[in-house]
């Protein structure tokens, strides 16, 4: 009879024996497996940190040279090949604040409906699938949607308002998801305790559930803030200007924005190679801005967490 497993050749048997021996000595085998597993986990974590570090280092290394007080407080000059990026910083701040003002209330209210009011069933499931799909929609599609609805149909024009609304809808799924998780993590016993006192459902949500969920909601919003500040495609058609010589006077004005400014300089500028340092400098400012906003949110969150403990 021919051997059924050609692998079982010379050497294979010895190897099997060694493995079996280790397996017999089972504690040793288990420690060995544990070591391999821990090693893999450590390496994964390291890769993430290195990637982030690499990106940040690359941006800082290439961009720090152009950073100066003038760079962040002056208008661009000489067809944007020199000067500062102040209008883009201001524009991104406006758009981010605008997006949060749209996305946060809407997201929280939706999450309250989904977790506290809606009967858990088919409709809620469909809504949740819808929200997940919304999260997966490419950002350029949001941009086109914003262009069609806010800019053209509602006649807002390319403006802070249209851009904020578009970005607000873009970050809505993130905020709903985070708010839902945060609301669910508030112990059911708190709701029962409040309702049993003869406090109405709305008051219970407003006075007990929401305050205890806020730190969690903040965490989710941090992700939303980063995304709103960094996206280019959604504001391309709805808010961003190639160049403005003054700051916006109202929410119906166009603005410059950091991500769009980088995009413009890197692809359509008058002298792409020459403006490379400015591109990196702008990227550095954008990253610093997002991290700065995150930091503020984290500080507020940890302050609120200190107040609430259960």
């Amino acid at each position: 009879m021919p051997p059924r497993y050609p692998l079982k050749a010379k050497g294979y048997k010895e190897l099997t024996n060694v493995i079996n021996k280790i397996k017999d000595n089972s504690m040793q085998w288990r420690y060995f497996k544990q070591k391999i597993f821990f090693g893999a986990v450590r390496i994964s974590a390291l890769i993430i940190v290195l990637t982030l570090g690499g990106i940040v280092f690359h941006i800082i290394f290439n961009g720090i040279g152009v950073i100066s007080w003038d760079f962040i407080t002056k208008y661009p000059t000489d067809s944007m090949t020199k000067g500062g990026i102040m209008p883009a910083i201001i524009g991104t701040l406006y758009l981010t604040v605008g997006a949060i003002s749209v996305g946060l209330p809407l997201g929280i209210v939706s999450a309250i409906y989904l977790t506290e009011y809606a009967r858990q069933g088919k409709i809620v499931r469909i809504i949740k699938v819808g929200i997940n799909c919304l999260a997966g929609v490419p950002s350029v599609v949001f941009g086109l949607f914003g262009l069609g609805l806010f800019v053209v149909f509602l006649k807002f024009g390319s403006s802070i308002l249209a851009g904020s609304l578009t970005l607000g809808f873009l970050i809505l799924p993130t905020i709903i998801g985070a708010a839902e998780e945060a609301l669910k993590s508030v112990p059911q016993t708190f709701r029962e305790a409040s309702l049993a006192l003869g406090v109405s459902k709305w008051q219970t949500i407003f006075r007990i559930v929401l305050p205890n969920a806020l730190p969690g909601i903040m965490t989710g919003s941090i992700l939303g803030i980063g995304r709103a500040a960094g996206e280019t495609a959604p504001i391309m058609f709805t808010a961003a200007a190639y160049f403005t010589s003054k700051l916006p006077g109202s929410i119906f004005d166009e603005v410059m924005a950091l991500p769009y400014h980088i995009y413009v300089l890197a692809t359509a500028g008058t002298n792409i190679e020459q403006t490379r340092p400015i591109q990196f400098g702008t990227a550095l400012v954008l990253v610093a801005l997002v991290l700065g906003i995150d930091l503020i949110a984290i500080v507020i969150r940890s302050y609120m967490r200190k107040q609430k403990r259960w």
Partner: peptide, 19 residues
């Protein structure tokens, strides 16, 4: 039911003070 619960209070199995 809110009116009823004002008149009929409840204490639960596990102490559940608010934070």
């Amino acid at each position: 039911p809110v009116e009823i619960r004002k008149k009929i209070g409840m204490v639960f199995q596990k102490p559940n003070p608010f934070p």
